[in-house]
Design a protein around this nucleic acid. Structure first.
Lengths: 345, 345
DNA sequence: AGAGTTTATGTGTACGATAACATTTTTTTG
DNA sequence: CAAAAAAATGTTATCGTACACATAAACTCT
C-alpha cells in the first residue's frame, strides 16, 4: 500500500499550486472554472482525504468543554459517571483541552438552570455535555446553546429535542420489558407483582414512567398476573411501604425502577418476607444484596460508559473532526451475582 | 487554562536550545551534567508532556498491521469479529495505516501455523492481532513475533504467555458460573442438567473446559442436582445426541458451551421435549430461538467489540503512543429475548 | 494605450517534535 | 601552546494543513 495523497500531490496532478487546492477544499472562492475542474478531478481520482493529524496540529486551539451533571454527593448513582468523566479527561490529557465538571442539585430544577446559565456564559466555550433531568429547563438551555453555536450533548436521560447534537443512553422502554421478562422467569403464574418508584424528588419521572410502560407492555401478553404500582419519595418510604405490603399482603415480586432496590430488601427483612426482586444500578448496597441472593437481578445502566462515551464523542469531534452519530444506544445489561464483578472493573 | 508547554518553552526555561532538550528527552547523550539538570528541572516544573499530534505528524510512517482469525465461512461465529475489524479499519481510514485481514481454517492447526508464518515474513510488519485457538502453535508464533520485535495482540481465546503485549477477552470460568446461575434460576431442585460441548473440531477445547469448570463450581454449593457432560463433534451430533437424551431420559436443562445451542433446540423438537436452555453467542439462529422462547438465555461474548478493541488498541499504541493495558476483560453479558436487540446494533 | 481594479494564482510561514547537520566549546596530544 | 579530536550545543528542514501575504493575469475605464 502506498502513502496517502497529500494536498501537494493533488496540486501537482491538477497542475496548480497548493494554494489553489486549499481554496477549492475550503470553498473560499477566487478559483477559475478551469482550475476548479482540474482540482476536483484530481481530488476524486486520487481519493484525497485530509490528514487529520496535520490539520489538528495546525489548528492548534485550546478547546473548552464543560460537563454538567447531578451532584454525586446527593445521589451516589452519579459517582460512576464522574469516574467516567475523569478517566476520559486523563485519557486525553496530552491534548490541549480545557474540561471542567460542574454539579447541580438533582432535586432542584432551578439549580440546574442557574449552573447551566453560568456555564454557557464562558468565553469561547466549544461544547457542553449534560444530564437533562428536567425537561423544560433543559430545552431552554439547548435553545441558548444553539444560538451560541456551542456543541450540545446529553447522556443518561433522554429528551426529544432536535437541537441535541449527540445523545448517549439506553432505551428505557425496552429496559422495562427486560425487567418484566426477568421477573417473569422468576415467578409462578398468578403471582402478585409490584412496580415501585422510589426517588428523592420524582425528577426522574419520565425515566420511571418509560420503564413502567415497558414493564406493563410485556405482561399484557401474559394475562394472569396482578400488577400494582407504588410511587414513593425516599423519605416517606419507611412509613408507607410496610402499609403497602400488608395491604396487598402477599406480594411475590418487586420491580424497582430506580437505584433504591436495597430499600425494599431492608423493608422485607423487617417483615420477614422473601420475594423476587429486580432493580437497577450497581450501587455497592445493591451489589451486596445481589451477592447474598436478596436481589435476583439488577439492570445495569452503564453510567460510567455513558459519561465516557459522551465526553469522548465531543472531544473526538472537536480534535479529529470525527463524525459522531446523533444517537448512541447502549445495551441493556442484565446482572446477576455471577457476572456482576465483570461490570465493576 | 493555559496552553500546554512545548519543547520550546522547556528550552527557554532551561536556558538551552531545543536540540539539547530533545537529546535529554530521547536520551541520546552528548549532554553536559549542567544542561541535563537544567532541562530535567524545567521538564518537571512545567510538567511537560509531548504533543502526540506533532510527534505523529513528524514520524509519518505507514504502520502495517495484520489480523489473523478463523474463517467466518467455516464458523459463522467469526463473522461479527470480521465486522468489528472492518469498522475499525474504516474508522481510522484517514490515517496512514496498512491493515490486512487473513483467515485460517479453525479445524486445522497447520493452517494457522502456515498463515501465521507467512504473515510475519512481511517486510516492516508492526503488529499482529490474532485468535490463538491452538495453544502450541500460538506460542511458537509469539516467540517469533518477540524476536522480530513485532507487537502482538490476541483476542477471544486466552493464552497464558507473557510475550503477548495485549489481550482482549472474557473470563471464561466466570462465564461458566454465570451460565450455571441462570440455569439454576430456571429449574427446580433435583433436576437433571447436561453440559454439552458441540464443536467442529474440539479446537476450542480449552475454552469449553474453562466454562465447564466454572459451571460445575457453581453447582458444588447446591448438592441436589445431577450433572452430565456430553462432548460432540458437529457432524456426529444428529446420531449421538438422541441417544444421550433417551439414555438419561429426563433431562431438564442444557448448558451449551459453544454457539450451537440451536442444534439442541432442533433435536429436542424432534423428541417433542421442552427443556431450559442456556447457550452462547448471538448467531441469527440462536437469536430466533431466543425470541420464540426455545432458548432461555444466551451469554454474549461480544465478538465484535473484542475484535474492535483489540485492533483499536494496536492502532492507538502505534499512532498515538497510547499505553494499552496488557489485559482487557470484557463484561459477561446475559441476553434474553428482551435485551437481545440492544446488543445487535 | 496605460493607469487602476478586480480576479486568480503562487509563496512563505507556523503548528510541535524530530533528527540531520553546522557550529561552538572543551579536552587531548605532540 | 597550537593543532587535532572529542564533546556539547545550536540551527534548520521536514511532516501536511491552513492562512496571510505577495505576485501575476485579466479586465475596466478615461
Amino acid at each position: 500500500m502506498k502513502k496517502k495523497h497529500t494536498i501537494k500531490d493533488i496540486a501537482q496532478a491538477a497542475g496548480v499550486s497548493i494554494g489553489t487546492v486549499d481554496r477549492v477544499l475550503h470553498k473560499r472562492g477566487k478559483v477559475s472554472e478551469k482550475a476548479l475542474k482540474a482540482v476536483t478531478d484530481a481530488l476524486n481520482n486520487l481519493n484525497y482525504k485530509p490528514n487529520p493529524i496535520a490539520r489538528t496540529l495546525k489548528n492548534n486551539t485550546i478547546y473548552s468543554i464543560k460537563v454538567l451533571l447531578p451532584d454525586p454527593e446527593m445521589d451516589p448513582y452519579w459517582k460512576r459517571c464522574m469516574e467516567g468523566i475523569n478517566e476520559t479527561i486523563e485519557e486525553f490529557s496530552a491534548f490541549d483541552l480545557e474540561i471542567e465538571t460542574h454539579c447541580y442539585d438533582p432535586s432542584e430544577p432551578s439549580s440546574f438552570s442557574k449552573t447551566g446559565e453560568q456555564l454557557i456564559q464562558t468565553e469561547n466555550l466549544n461544547a457542553l455535555l449534560f444530564v437533562p433531568l428536567f425537561e423544560m429547563e433543559s430545552n431552554a438551555l439547548l435553545k441558548k446553546l444553539g444560538e451560541k453555536q456551542i456543541l450540545s450533548a446529553t447522556f443518561n436521560s433522554s429528551l426529544s429535542n432536535d437541537l441535541i447534537d449527540q445523545h448517549t443512553g439506553q432505551d428505557l422502554y425496552s429496559s422495562g420489558r427486560v425487567g418484566a421478562k426477568l421477573i417473569h422467569s422468576l415467578i409462578k403464574p398468578d403471582s402478585k407483582i409490584a412496580i415501585v418508584h422510589i426517588d428523592e424528588a420524582f425528577n426522574n419521572a419520565v425515566h420511571m414512567k418509560q420503564k413502567e410502560q415497558g414493564f406493563i407492555s410485556f405482561f399484557k401478553d401474559f394475562g394472569s398476573f396482578q400488577i400494582q404500582t407504588l410511587t414513593l419519595n425516599s423519605n416517606e418510604f419507611e412509613v408507607k411501604f410496610p402499609n403497602f405490603v400488608t395491604q396487598f399482603d402477599t406480594m411475590d415480586a418487586f420491580f424497582v425502577t430506580t437505584s433504591k432496590a436495597y430499600e425494599i430488601v431492608k423493608a422485607l427483612k423487617k417483615e420477614n418476607k422473601k420475594c423476587s426482586i429486580v432493580g437497577y444500578d450497581l450501587l455497592p448496597r445493591n451489589v451486596s444484596c445481589l451477592k447474598t441472593g436478596e436481589i435476583d437481578f439488577l439492570i445495569h445502566q452503564s453510567p460510567k460508559t455513558q459519561a465516557s462515551l459522551g465526553l469522548r464523542g465531543l472531544i473526538e469531534t472537536l480534535i479529529f473532526g470525527k463524525e459522531i452519530p446523533k444517537k448512541q444506544l447502549l445495551p441493556i445489561d442484565i446482572v446477576n451475582s455471577e457476572n456482576v464483578d465483570s461490570y465493576l472493573i
